[in-house]
Design a protein around this nucleic acid. Sequence first.
DNA 1: TTTCTGCATGTTGCATGCAATTTGCGCAAA
DNA 2: TTTGCGCAAATTGCATGCAACATGCAGAAA
Lengths: 242, 242
Amino acid sequence: MDVVARRRGRPRKALVVPAAQVPRTGLHEQAAARLKDMIVRGALPAGATLVETDLSVALGISRTPLREALKLLAAEGLVELHQNRSARVPDWTPEEILELFEALAGIERLTAELAAPRISEALMDDLRGKQAQLDRMHRDQALDAYFALNQEIHRTIVTAARNRPLAEAHAALQARAQWARLRALSSGSRWEESAREHRDLFGALAARDAAAAGTVAHRHVLRTGVVIAETLQARRADPAAR
Amino acid sequence: MDVVARRRGRPRKALVVPAAQVPRTGLHEQAAARLKDMIVRGALPAGATLVETDLSVALGISRTPLREALKLLAAEGLVELHQNRSARVPDWTPEEILELFEALAGIERLTAELAAPRISEALMDDLRGKQAQLDRMHRDQALDAYFALNQEIHRTIVTAARNRPLAEAHAALQARAQWARLRALSSGSRWEESAREHRDLFGALAARDAAAAGTVAHRHVLRTGVVIAETLQARRADPAAR
DNA sequence: TTTCTGCATGTTGCATGCAATTTGCGCAAA
DNA sequence: TTTGCGCAAATTGCATGCAACATGCAGAAA
């Protein structure tokens, strides 16, 4: 049987007014986004068993789109699926988190190296502004805002690298990394170091020094991962520890 | 509502004989595997429109598992899904293929760097054997076998890096890369070069020289990508060209 | 007691049906 | 001719039903 359908008739002419791009999205996509958020924020705790019927009722949708959403999350490593078994939120060990940040560090090294020579002037200006703001937040000790902008800067650099597959790989790892970060809100001692690394990274990019940018990015992310993994390890031994 | 189910009753004791691990797998997974194969081999050509009903009949399954399979493939970039539109096999441009190999080269650099210090003796022996066999195939001009073993060696190195997230990212890119490789079966001129690079890579790994292994792996994959993208470009201009 | 077996219950995997949306095409108007 | 409109057919998105499988427990056997 021929399963390849072909376009029939003349192609429809494009509308003159492209009609506001409302990103209408299917229920499965919405469900995936909501579930991802719930897992990252801990509303669905590590180790939780997800029963399809319960979850579908909770989200107000039927099992069909929910199952599709779970498959998407499984592809990102956010849930574990096994044949004829309920989905589970993985309980990542500190070792796995370290592995994750090792991968993330490697990928951010690549993006930094690629971004250095090919970042556009517009993005460079954007980055300059963000870096200045980050410094202010550091000076003002605005931890939450620093945290958020930090993430945004990393994403900007990934964008500047202009490599779609790498950006996708990066995004796929980010959810789990965010889970770990939220669970081990960085201690103040690392803050100084982090801020300095960010200044170095920006400097290397501004100088279009690919090797330096890559090295700094790698060290920065890996150090972050080590600290987070250590914090998780300590908290695992003594859950009350802050 | 509480959507988190918990284990009830006493845990069942593990079987003494763990019963042969038959990897029973759902229809959606099988469908995804078959479709991936069909796309990579070109049975579903680039640009093809995939109508769910037709595909499900062709595969002998219903639309439900088929839709789940399509979602999985979309996550790997093997099909494009748009709201209320039929799935489509993307028609990757040579530029996109080059981007893909740029990402792949970066990731394989990372895996080579990680593998150099941490590869186990067993895997090193395995690799030694494969490298010797590859040299024989090169000498005997056994192109197909060389091609297949080549891929296997790359996967082995990824395994040796012992980093799950990186391995997953690598695997996700591999399908599209394979699509490109099959469509631009490498010209003989590049063969010599490729064989030499493989010897260099093995040498660097054997010497546990991470930097060298990374550099060689990166150059090797990127060169491959450049040649493939150029071939695709030429063939696009003149489809009859061999 | 401890271990095994069969059954009731809970849960997943898949097929099917229906409504909503898109698409193709004829036909009228400019 | 070209453009716009509207309807019918094709197609997707989602809900629901049912069979297969897994799980936990009661009761039998060791």
